[in-house]
Design a protein around this nucleic acid. Structure first.
Lengths: 348, 348
DNA sequence: GCAATTTTCGTGTACGTAAACAATTTGCAA
DNA sequence: TTGCAAATTGTTTACGTACACGAAAATTGC
């Protein structure tokens, strides 16, 4: 593997010059710059990470912009776990992580928090732009060179930064397939409209409906659920559903609040068994899955999202990679039988 | 983070002495050894990987002991891809990989190949002990200090080395769940006995049967398939099955040859649709899944297995970690809708 | 008690890069 | 042409570890 010294020799300049050109921190003539750049490209030189980190051995400040971890059925706590896991996969890199939590039901808090994260002199940002409109607006206003990676949710304009997450539409389609099999492909199905301001959750619902498009044997009924922390609201919505569709055969809840519906449904005497499919392996959902109150869970792999996102971000920072990647993680189907394989991954 | 120099100062010896003690390459008195060791333990010192690799910058020879990649429906080609992928995740580590392929239908070739791998002075070995008996015998004979990691298949005595793979029994159970839903939990189901000498494949079948234990509505029928490369053999077995069970509702093939059965079944006029569940995302199976000839595929994540196994092995070698881990990867259920999410992971 | 060993320990150099500092060349006005 | 500042380039040191080499100390043999 070629070194900076070798390049200097071939270009008949000093290593200092080569170094300046690599990090384009100016102070050299255009002629030598081109000469050296040419050799770098020809030889495919890549700085040795070991050596460069050894000499720098500085700490990296990483800001995480995401919703409050306990706001939505603490799904976001899993993302946080993943980020911390990713951090520990860089031993000897002193990564200092600072969280900037926003309230996902209040656009304003996103603005505030994002500007803080920008102003704090972070070396890189990990952003979960769940509120996609404010996020987009914000990013257009603040043109910045700080490396950024989006996770969990992305923005329509993907050229801004890398993204790690799931293909929501196909995930919805996948739920459609499972629901079709569970119900014998006929009957009434409830689709819960939850947190309508969340772009991603809506795409899931659209994918689900798309699966059944043109299928007259299945009736999909949308029900709106106001954002609420109150359990009785879930219960009363389920009662309403029962009044309208006593022969309900299935229900799809496109976010982590699945367990609340599962518990409510369990107490209401529907004609048939109501098959429930939902999202995210938070502990309440896991419990319901074990008890047979939920048939399938779609896993977004929040932990792996965190790991991958931080890895991509660190590579941006360390290697100055600038290519925008989109890492779409597998859409994982979780049933009672393979559940443990998702939770107890490592056995000592 | 504490350095070797700091330890030397605290123990009032030179860094050379500390270095000798860390790598216990002798040449120092017992007294100083204890003194330094104590300080190392107290401070929790860990050598800086960057620096140590920088100075060594040697190449690592890794041997891979696995079946011929194209022997079984080229499933093993995927493992190989994963290993190469893992290799490239260690840039600046000059990892030289040498493959030692054995014939999985001939124990003797395993012996030969394994001894070669041991004798070639490799720094570490990645082993797929598909033929578990010969492997176990071999490993008891050759006590060795070469770091090893098993992948795909493990051995009953797991204390020998780390393992990366899947919980086969629970994977079989998972297939049971899917089959139960697909068939409406009733009818005749065929379970194919394929490559009986493969411990892992049998465990999958056992898990599958266990799921239906005590369930009188489902009848599971085992059919033996001799190892063969001949397509007409698959066809004739399917004809036999049709003669015996014209109302067959489902079929489980516990390895990568699923597509051969799917194609044969497709040409035979069974009474009902025969739902097929099988293993491994090789391209023929992917094609059948897309065409609706296969309902579900269980993914073993061979690529990730390769990546993880090599990562664990390299950590053993570089950091001298010796803890034996068991990394059980998620049992992934693949349907037509989420298929792409498993194959097109990275979009540029 | 002294030389010849052996054991134990310290010093110096190298790995490849980053960045401060020193040295050199260039451009331009006087 | 000279002087002087600005632009450009070269040199040196440091990062933390590994290891060769040599120096010092301890041990042995006579």
């Amino acid at each position: 593997m070629i070194t900076i010294k070798e390049i200097a020799k071939r270009a008949s300049v000093s290593i200092g010059t080569v170094d300046r050109i690599i990090h384009n921190r100016g102070g050299c003539s255009e002629k030598t710059r081109q000469k050296v750049t040419k050799i770098i490209e020809e030889t495919g030189f890549k700085p040795n990470v070991m050596a460069s980190h050894l000499v720098k051995s500085r700490s990296y400040a990483i800001g995480i912009v995401m919703p409050f971890p306990y706001q939505n059925d603490n799904f976001w706590e899993l993302s946080r776990t993943g980020i911390e896991r990713g951090r520990s996969s860089f031993p000897h890199f002193d990564i200092k992580i600072k969280y900037y939590f926003y309230n996902r039901y209040a656009d304003l808090t996103f603005f505030t928090v994002f500007e803080q994260a920008m102003g704090d002199g972070n070396d890189g940002l990990l952003i979960a732009p769940v509120l996609s409109l404010p996020a987009q607006e914000m990013l257009q206003k603040h043109k910045t060179d700080i490396p950024m990676v989006f996770f969990n949710a992305s923005l329509p304009d993907s050229s801004i930064a890398s993204f790690v997450g799931q293909d929501c539409f196909m995930a919805g389609m996948t739920v459609g397939r499972l629901m079709s099999i569970l119900t014998g492909n006929e009957g009434n199905i409830a689709l819960i409209d939850i947190s309508p301001e969340d772009y991603h959750i809506n795409i899931r619902a659209q994918g689900f409906e798309q699966f059944f498009a043109g299928n007259a044997r299945i009736q999909i009924h949308r029900f709106s659920m106001p954002n609420s922390e109150d359990f009785s609201d879930f219960e009363s919505l389920c009662t309403t559903i029962h009044d309208q569709l006593p022969d309900l055969k299935g229900m799809f809840i496109p976010n982590a609040s699945t367990y609340r519906f599962a518990q409510a449904i369990d107490r209401i005497p529907f004609k048939n068994k109501v098959f429930i499919i939902g999202y995210d392996l938070i502990k309440e959902n896991i419990e319901c899955l074990k008890q047979g109150k939920i048939e399938f869970i779609i896993n977004q792999q929040p932990i792996r999202q965190g790991i991958e996102a931080l890895t991509i971000l660190m590579n941006h920072i360390i290697h100055r990679e600038v290519d925008r990647k989109e890492l779409l993680l597998p859409i994982e189907i979780v049933a009672r039988e393979n559940l443990d394989s998702f939770t107890n991954i490592i056995r000592p």
